[in-house]
Amino acid sequence: MDILNTIISAIYYLFIAFISVLIIYNLIKTKDWKKEVIYIVILMPFLLRLFFLK
């Protein structure tokens, strides 16, 4: 069970990192300020997770 939890957590954090990169990429590329706001809002929880900030 513990090993399974570790594997699932590792996969989860890889997903988080991948999605964070996508969001940051889109944040840089977009020219619409409303989209920038949305990207920043949705980026925050991903970064908190990625950096283990509780």
Binding site: L27, I28, K31, W33, E36, V37, I40, V41, L43, M44, L48, L53
Partner: peptide, 25 residues
């Protein structure tokens, strides 16, 4: 990328960070 766009992105990111810090506190 235009300078104006970069400044806006930095300002918005900073604002988001400030909100996170206050909520975190």
């Amino acid at each position: 990328m235009k300078t104006k766009s970069i400044i806006r992105k930095v300002l918005l990111s900073t604002a988001g960070l400030v909100i996170v810090v206050f909520a975190g506190i």
